[in-house]
Structure formats: C-alpha cells, structure tokens
Computed example of a mutant assay.
Amino acid sequence: MGIKANIFNIQHFSVHDGPGVRTVVFFKGCSLHCRWCHNPESIHAAKEILLYPDRCIGCMACREVCPVGAQVFDETGHWIDRSKCIHCFKCCEECYADALVSVGEWRDTDSILKEILENKGYFDQSKGGVTFSGGECMLQPDALTELLKGCQAAGVHTAVDTAGNVPWESFEQVLPYTDLFLYDIKAMDTDVHKACTGVENGRILENFTRLADRGENIFVRYPYIPGMNDDQVEKIAEFLHRWQQIEAELLPYHKLGNSKYRALEAQNVFEGTVPLKDEVEMLKKKYGFQ
C-alpha cells in the first residue's frame, strides 16, 4: 500500500513544470499564503468543497442530502453556509452536474506511482518525467521520498517544485532521489516577502544557498506581481548572479486562479494588475530571466 500522501490533483501531459512532457502531482497543504496563489485549493491541508454556481442546474439534490442545511438556494442564487458545513461531502457525491466538487484526498504512494508510470513512454520520448508540486510537497517528506525513490528506480526523471520553507532535514531526505529542484524565490526583502506570503524568507534563502553551494540542479522561478514584489526583480537577479550555472524564469501574474477563489467563496480575493507583455520582455532581457 505504501505511505499515504495528501494530494489534490494529478495532471498529465504538462509542458510547463520541467523538461519534456511531465506528470505533475499536486500535494495539498502549504506553509506560505501567497496573496496571488493560482491554486488556492492547495493552501489548506484539509479537504475542501468548491462550488461553481454556473454549473448548478437547480435540482437542489445537494440540499436534500445535507444534514445541517448548509446548502442554500435563495434570491442571490446557490451558496454554501460554510459556518454550518460539517464537511461530510454528501453534497459533492450527489451533484452529478459537478457544481460541487471536493478537493483533496489521501492516496497511497503505490497507487500514485502506478499512475505516474503509465506515462513512462511519453517521458522517454520527450526526455520528460514527473514533477511533485503543491501546495508544498516538501511538507510531506516521507511520502515524497517514497515516490521519488520509485520513480528513480523506474528510470523516470524527477523534479521537486518547492518554495523552500521547510527544515533543511527535509531537503537532505529527498536529495538522493531528486534530479531537479524548481525553486520559487518571491522576494529578497524580508518585509516584502512577509507582506506577500505571510512568512519571512530567512529559511527559504538559507536552504536555497545550501542547495546551490552543493551544486544541485536548480531552476529558479520568480513570480512577478505588480504592486507586490515588482521592486524585487533586480535584487533577485543580483542574488542569483553568485551561481552562474543557475537559470531563472520570470513568471508574470495572471488571474486564471480567480475562479477557484470564487468557488471556495473566499473573502478579500487578490485582484492584481496583469503586467504588459512588453514590460515583462524588457525585464527578462535586462536581468537575464527566461
């Protein structure tokens, strides 16, 4: 059966999370709360309910099975009284229109590994592999290590996508089985980082430095968010200049995750400004980002 891992999605045929065609395993739970997070369903470790009112056909079957009356239909439409909800998920099981969707499940690593290896032919042809992401996959080091070991034994390239806000011991545990680290650096200034993510960045930068000084294979990803961390681009470029072998990518802010915030019925959803393409290209060229 293997070890249990708390995940919320497995995405096949990704081409944006490492080299080649990849399968991406998304772990649930994160130690950062980035205000712009495009996977808000990944932040909390607990299983959650997403509500997509535009899919609702008004059958009210969810209201019939809800034991606490948390499913509400009124003049404003369909919504969840989350103060009542006991997370029994009977509503999600009943909703055949997929207006109510549960996110998060505990799966054994053997079943996850089996699903990953179904695409090994595509990995071999494209020089791709598997990427473990999140949330923060490094918060579940035992399950992550088990999966990395299995992939390595099968000859599958492995990548770990991390924000680095975990004990160094977790890195030591996965290092022997990780071919590539996709490492997020969101800000150099501690106060900016805390304002953006809710936590300071000392451990993140320390872990990165230890990895880089060891000569590990690292690809840096810097999310560029106008009005939040856009003044950090030069500082991050200067910091990375110490390691000439490390490449970095600038990822411009987008609003593709906003529908998920609405589905979680979240409050105070971040509404940032999407940067202009010319601005992004200028910054990439000036500071050496991909």
Rank of each mutant, 00 (worst) to 15 (best):
M1A: 14
A5M: 08
I7Q: 05
I10L: 12
D17Q: 09
D17W: 10
P19T: 03
P19L: 08
R22N: 07
R22Q: 04
V25C: 07
K28A: 00
G29S: 06
G29V: 07
L32I: 07
H33Y: 11
P40N: 11
S42L: 00
I43W: 07
E48M: 07
L50Q: 08
L50K: 05
R55S: 10
I57V: 15
G58C: 13
C59V: 10
C59R: 00
C62F: 05
E64I: 14
E64H: 13
C66T: 14
P67S: 12
P67A: 10
G69A: 11
Q71T: 13
F73I: 02
E75P: 02
E75F: 09
G77M: 06
I80A: 10
C85G: 09
C88S: 04
C91S: 04
E93A: 14
E94R: 14
E94W: 07
Y96C: 12
S102N: 02
V103F: 08
D108T: 09
D108M: 05
T109D: 00
D110R: 05
I112D: 01
I112E: 00
L117A: 09
K120P: 11
G121I: 14
G121M: 11
D124R: 08
D124A: 08
D124I: 06
K127H: 13
G128T: 03
G129W: 07
S133W: 10
S133C: 11
S133V: 14
S133H: 12
C137G: 14
Q140R: 08
P141I: 10
A143R: 04
L144M: 01
L147M: 12
G150Q: 03
A153G: 08
H157S: 08
T162P: 02
G164C: 05
V166Y: 01
W168G: 05
Q173M: 15
V174T: 14
T178N: 04
D179M: 08
D184L: 01
K186H: 05
K186V: 12
T190F: 00
V192T: 12
K194Q: 13
K194W: 01
C196Y: 13
T197P: 01
G198M: 06
L205P: 00
D213C: 03
N217G: 10
I218K: 08
P223I: 05
Y224S: 09
I225A: 02
N229M: 04
D231E: 05
I236H: 00
E238D: 15
L240D: 04
W243H: 06
Q244I: 15
Q245R: 15
Q245D: 15
I246E: 01
H254D: 06
K255I: 11
K255L: 11
G257L: 08
S259T: 13
A266V: 11
N268R: 11
V269C: 10
V269G: 00
E271Y: 11
E271T: 08
T273S: 11
V274K: 05
E279H: 10
E281W: 00
E281N: 10
M282W: 07
F289E: 02
Q290M: 07
